[in-house]
Structures are given as C-alpha cells and as structure tokens.
Amino acid sequence: MIEKIIYKKPDSLTDVNFSYCPGCGHSTVHKIIAEVIDELALRENTIAVAPVGCAVFAYNFWDFDVTEAPHGRTPAVATAIKRVLPDRLVFSYQGDGDLASIGMAEIVHTANRGENITVIFINNTNYGMTGGQLAPTTLLNQKTTTSPFGRDAKNYGYPFKMLEFLSPLEGVKYLERVKVTDAASVVKTKNAIKKGFSYQLQNIGFSMIEVLSSCPANWRKEPLDSNKWIEEEISKVYPVGKIKDIK
C-alpha cells in the first residue's frame, strides 16, 4: 500500500494546541491564514498584529512574526509596521469588540487612509474572552451577559455592519464577508483571505475580510448548533458575499 499525504497541518502553525474552545471559529481562521501563508510562501515575509481578546494568544500558534497591540489599536500598529517595511505582508487580526468598539477610530482612519494592509475581522457577535458581553455586532434580542434581557435598540443601539460602513471610503479597495460553517465556506474564506493578501502584495490598498465566526461557549450552544445559528440568524443580519472589490 502506498500512502500519499494530501492534507496536513500547515507549516506556519506551531505544534502548540489552540487555546480556543471546541468548535471556535478563531481556530479555523488561524488555520486557513497559515495555509494561505504557506501557499504564498510568505512565512518569512509576514508580520501579524494580534488584538486583545481571545486571539491575543495568536502568537503562540503562528510560526511567523507576530506582535500585539493595545485594545483596538491594532490597525495603527499594523500601519506603522507596513510603512516601515513596505515589502512585507502585514495583516491585523481583530475581533468585533476590538475592531468595532474600542478600536472604531483606528479602523476607520486606517481604512480611509487606504493603508496597504489586510484586516481579518472576526465577528462572533460578542466579547468572547471576557465572558460573552454585548458587542456592537450583537444581534437585536440576542442575550449576552451585559444584555441579559436581550439587546433592545433603545438601550443598546443596533448591530454594527462594519463592511457596509467602511465601503464608501475611497481608500478601501476590497471588502468581503465570509463564514466558516462547513468545508465549502471554509474554502471560500481561504480564497478571500488569499485575495486580500495578494492585493496587498500588488499594492492595491486596504482590504478587510469579515468572518462570521462561532463562539459556542458564550452562546451556550454546541459547535454544530452554533454553526446552524450562523446560517439561520447571523447571516441574515450580516449577509455573506463581496461588498466591494476595486481592482
């Protein structure tokens, strides 16, 4: 018998186990980022900026250069790295609390300046690491630990659609919303990330990929049910697909 390996853990991932909960979307996205970097042979040419939140430990899992930024300031840190080292691949990896809440100013101005970086935005509709509090992206009526009676627009405002919000800015070149609920959608996400990275390599400008991602522990759902909830509820509010692509 001859055994030929056709799928394995990407080289750009270390042997450290992900600290994420079972079924967490962060894990999947970490893995595909590593796959894309392997495929583009960019392991030695990449600098990532990790956020504050569950993904703050990303530097333990990726075997390329990673720094970390104060909460929400990730795009500012990434901007400067890219300006100093314009031939490197620089991406920031942020959650919805980090990007859409405390880091709103940084992401808007980085996008508006058209910085030639890629932003991977994980939207799981809550603050994961701190225990499932309301995020700007939380759905209406969704119960979180700080909206225990459900999010009502009067008290908490509306779910923030970041891609649609950034889309009119002239510096923004590529925006796509994806999900990682099954193999097909994982492949689509991988292609979107690859596109974002290759745009950056071609100096096209700012790109951001939003991933609808599950948070089974804080949603108090099993992983499979969490993905179902993304399919049935979350993607209704945040439809997947290309929002902007200017090449």
């Binding site: 909460h71 405390i102 225990g131 509090q133 630990t145 700080t146 008290n155 908490y156």
Partner: peptide
C-alpha cells in the same frame, strides 16, 4: 466583568441607567 454584568440587571431593577460603553 462581574460588575457590568451584575449591574446590567441591578440597575434595571433600580430604574437607573446602565450603559456598556464602547471603550
């Protein structure tokens, strides 16, 4: 985190204003 979480319930009971700020 238990403070804002518990406050989101207690402040509602007390009829006051609870706000989760963005930063």
């Amino acid at each position: 985190n238990e403070i804002p979480e518990y406050m989101s319930i207690k402040m509602k009971e007390a009829g006051g204003i609870f706000m989760q700020a963005e930063s």
